[in-house]
Design a protein around this nucleic acid. Structure first.
Length: 272
DNA sequence: ATGGTAGTCGCACTA
């Protein structure tokens, strides 16, 4: 029997974990997730602020960092096993870490930072955009080959850098040619989703005709007043976890904290 | 139509 009755998972693109460690501490103290998945930690494993997490009660850490760019970390109050980091596109980039939570009945959590893709949505002119699509193709191929699709309990979270639906962006029309909301990216994301029949947990709680954002650009004078957001961060689950999500929240307040990340945390609680 | 901000590293790069 699992030790936990519920599993509270949060995902947050922190845009430098060292610069914002105090915000992370505040978040952990207030929200007390069981597991927090961070993206864009922007540091190598050697300089990850491990002590601060341990002091906050998050003693179990699965790391895949790199210097200056990207990097993901999954920190947990309960043990993590079978830690795995997968390298995509032979780039040497740190954009994925997975770990299993035995106390939650062996739910496996995949934490992703999908490439942003640059400015120009054209694979011929922009190799960063090509990299983004390649990365999604690799994700699709990987999950397609996963076994035990009906029984394997997995959560996939992270900054996927794509806002797929009309109301995942402030203006569908104005963003159709803007990287993060182009039809080609959305098609690729849909194929990843189909590869393991992933369920979009955030949209199970917010109807498709309501706006839902997790990111607001730093470049707006007043992010809250402009509210030109996008839903770049996601929480998905496999069919074996269908119906187990009890709540979901985007902690929009955190976007207004001192020295904020441009992303807000997304939190979901699952019945174990 | 353009430029606006932020982080890392130490100038140009990424987002």
């Amino acid at each position: 029997m699992p030790k936990l009755k519920t599993l509270k998972v949060a995902t947050w693109n922190i845009n430098s974990v060292r610069l914002r460690i105090e915000s992370v501490e505040k978040f952990l103290k207030e929200q007390k997730p069981d597991v927090l998945c961070l993206q864009e930690i922007k540091c190598h494993n050697d300089v990850f602020p491990e002590k601060a997490f341990k002091k906050a009660g998050y003693e179990h850490i699965a790391l895949n960092g790199q210097k200056a760019y990207h990097g993901v970390a999954t920190v947990s109050r309960v043990p993590l096993t079978n830690i795995e980091t997968r390298e995509f596109c032979n780039k040497g980039d740190a954009r994925h870490v997975a770990a299993t939570v035995p106390d939650a009945g062996d739910i496996r959590i995949h934490n992703y930072y999908v490439p942003a893709g640059g400015d120009e949505p054209d694979v011929e002119k922009n190799e960063k955009f090509a990299h983004k699509l390649d990365f999604l193709n690799e994700m699709e191929a990987w999950y397609k080959n996963h076994k035990n699709k009906k029984t394997s309990k997995m959560v996939l979270v992270g900054d996927l850098n794509i806002a797929p639906f009309e109301h995942d962006v402030w203006s569908h029309k104005q963003l159709l040619k803007v990287v993060s909301h182009t039809p080609i990216e959305v098609e690729h994301l849909e194929r990843v989703q189909k590869s393991h029949s992933w369920i979009d947990v955030m949209r199970e709680f917010v109807p498709h005709d309501e706006k839902l954002y997790s990111w607001w650009s730093y470049r707006a004078k007043d992010w809250k007043a402009a509210n030109k957001g996008r839903r770049l961060d996601h929480i998905w689950v496999t069919p074996a976890m269908k119906g187990t999500a009890k709540s979901m929240e985007v902690l929009t307040d955190a976007r207004g904290w001192e020295k904020p990340s441009d992303h807000a945390p997304v939190i979901a609680t699952f019945k174990v």
